[in-house]
Simulated assay, not measured.
Amino acid sequence: MEKKSRSDLEKLTKEGLEDYAKAAFEVDLDRRKTKADLVAEVVSLQLAESDATRAADAPDPVLSRAAEKGKTRLTIHSCNGMDPIKLAVNGRVMEFPLNKPVSVPSHALPTLEAAGAKFTKE
């Protein structure tokens, strides 16, 4: 649903604000509040939604840093029925999810291969 400006929201009735919030954000507003409070609540819902969208579209800073530190980005598709995959690498247990891009230390690749993991490098 299209985002509305504050002035557009202020033109709506309390009922209109409630209908918009229900349709756009699946939220029930309390019509007993003042109209200004309802408008502020809808504006905050819109901001929260745009922040969430922006965060989802942003590159993962952990994965970006990992790529700089001798790690390999890959997606593990299967590993002998394990989900998630837990492997001991150099005395440390590491856990990797299936079918999601992850950063794996380069020294862990031989262990993954020995465990029968099927993966694609990115």
Rank of each mutant, 00 (worst) to 15 (best):
M1A: 05
R6A: 11
S7P: 05
S7V: 09
D8W: 01
L9Y: 01
E10Q: 14
K11Q: 07
K11D: 01
K11P: 00
T13D: 00
T13R: 02
K14R: 03
K14E: 03
K14M: 03
K14F: 00
E15S: 00
L17D: 07
E18H: 14
E18C: 03
E18W: 15
D19P: 00
Y20K: 00
Y20D: 08
K22L: 06
A23W: 02
A24Y: 06
A24I: 03
F25S: 05
V27C: 04
D30T: 12
D30R: 05
R31H: 04
R31D: 13
D37F: 14
L38I: 09
L38Y: 13
L38N: 10
V39E: 06
A40I: 11
E41G: 10
E41T: 15
V42S: 01
V42F: 03
V43Q: 00
S44C: 00
S44H: 02
Q46S: 07
L47I: 04
L47K: 11
E49W: 14
E49D: 15
E49T: 10
E49N: 10
S50V: 14
D51F: 14
D51V: 12
A52R: 15
T53G: 11
T53V: 14
R54E: 13
A55N: 12
A56G: 07
D57H: 08
D57L: 11
P59A: 01
D60Q: 05
L63P: 11
L63G: 05
A66G: 12
A66W: 08
A67Q: 11
E68F: 06
K69A: 11
K71P: 05
K71L: 02
K71R: 12
T72F: 00
R73P: 05
R73E: 12
R73M: 06
L74H: 04
T75F: 08
I76H: 10
H77C: 01
H77M: 03
S78Y: 07
G81P: 04
M82L: 06
K86T: 15
K86A: 11
L87D: 13
L87V: 11
N90F: 00
V93D: 15
M94D: 13
P97K: 15
L98Q: 11
L98D: 13
N99D: 15
N99C: 07
K100F: 12
K100N: 14
P101Y: 11
P101F: 10
P101I: 12
V102L: 09
S103T: 08
S103Q: 10
S103G: 15
S103E: 13
V104L: 09
P105H: 06
P105Y: 05
S106A: 09
H107K: 02
A108R: 04
L109S: 04
T111I: 13
L112W: 09
E113F: 02
A115C: 04
A115Q: 09
G116D: 07
A117D: 04
A117E: 03
F119K: 02
T120H: 05
K121Y: 02
K121V: 13
